[in-house]
Design a protein around this nucleic acid. Structure first.
Lengths: 232, 232
DNA sequence: AATTTTAAAAATATCGACAAATATAAGTTT
DNA sequence: AAACTTATATTTGTCGATATTTTTAAAATT
């Protein structure tokens, strides 16, 4: 990587992106999709060659990931990929339900047409992205959930939800690429959330959202037993 | 600073603490107490001489503070102290009330004697520390509030509360060193919280805690007008 | 044989120097 | 005089080298 790498912004212009940023995103993705296993040591030397950069950007990126709770730091003894546990999975699920309920209710209370438009658009983009294209679908799926709470007028809360979303993703990948959700229509769950939100029906939207999370949670927890993660 | 600086651990042994860690804490304190003003640029060169260290630990510490939302990063244009606003102050207050209520109720539900002991001890240490000794009192005050929620069995939630606590501290210092809280007995508020918690009375404890936060919030918001922070 | 000591190897944390980018100031044109 | 260029000065972001610390392995001691 070198700093002349450029990124295309939505308005067509280009701006340089720091290597730190690139390393941060690359590393985060690898951890989220499970390419770097929980507990694995993150040696700066290895990462240097793997990501083709110097030590400084790597250390900075690792510092950021530490705050995201995706990496653990042992003072004077380096970094390692954060561990996972059934207990943490439960905690994440519980917290997400609590925080997203707050955020969603507030978002609906402050809803305007611009928000409704963004939401419909995000949903449509998710629907038209084939599930097989995992990374593209994940991106759209995340956007949809972000838009839902985007009108809550509470940036810190949004940040917390975002962090929990990422922490949760790891467990989805850890559960393994299962063919499809049996006896479950995820698309309908999303459509229900959207419909209730557009209706400004806070109770129904919250109900639909939390059901969506809890169903996914239950499904994943069942998978974990086959993947060495003990239930809480 | 040099890496031979050592820190005495509770058990009497010493262990070396990385410069990054020292820089992180020094910088965080300076930001929290308002010694580095909101919006001020954080030039690595200046910080190098101020803190007597190299650029790497400074950058790493700044990266960590970015995640704490105490520092803002502008890609390719360095770091600066995060801005403050009446709106953010309100957001922090609202979020603290919501999250700490969750955490406190769960903590009380899971309470055991060890927790009760830690809590009584933390309260006593706070009481015996003179308010004039600001930094020592702040430390004990923070410990007391941490112990309150320490039994909630939700490390991520605790971390969020901790972050919000620090964000809030800044506003306390920004409001200025006011002689004393008029018509308010803060010590009694703390005692009430402690008593309700020891009684395992979740409703009373929550009530006392949130009242404590809201009274402080109202008091601070009144001060802000004299310090250039517009109400939300 | 288990523990402690010593020595070598590996890895982390840090520094100082440099290249790339941004901000500032001076000069030029409209 | 305002707006655009150009040149200069800062400052950021990055790299490669080095000093410290931790880990591993071997040797010595109990």
């Amino acid at each position: 990587m070198n700093r002349s790498d450029r990124e295309i912004t939505p308005d067509g212009s280009t701006k340089s992106v720091s290597i730190t940023q690139q390393v941060y995103e690359a590393l985060r993705d690898k951890i989220l999709i499970g390419q770097m296993e929980p507990g694995a040591r993150l040696k700066v030397e290895s990462l240097k060659s793997m990501l083709d950069s110097g030590a400084s950007p790597i250390r900075e990126a690792l510092s950021l990931l530490t705050s995201d709770q995706l990496v653990e730091r042992l003072d004077q003894r380096g970094f390692r990929v954060a561990e996972v546990s059934g207990a943490q999975f439960d905690e994440i699920l519980r917290l997400r339900c609590a925080l997203e309920e707050m955020a969603l209710r507030e978002s609906i209370a402050r809803a305007d047409n611009a928000w409704e438009d963004r939401l419909v658009l995000a949903h449509h983009r998710m629907v038209r992205t084939p599930r097989e294209n995992t990374s593209a679908f994940e991106e759209q799926h995340k956007s949809f959930h972000q838009e839902l709470i985007s009108a809550c007028n509470s940036p810190i809360l949004v940040k917390f939800c975002d962090q929990l979303y990422d922490l949760n993703i790891r467990y989805r990948f850890l559960a393994g690429k299962t063919k499809s959700y049996p006896s479950r229509d995820v698309s309908k769950e999303h459509a229900d959330i959207l419909a209730a939100a557009v209706d400004r029906d806070a109770d129904a939207a919250t109900e639909a959202l939390l059901t969506h999370y809890r169903k996914t949670g239950q499904f994943l927890a069942d998978q974990f037993e086959d993947h060495g993660i003990a239930p809480a």
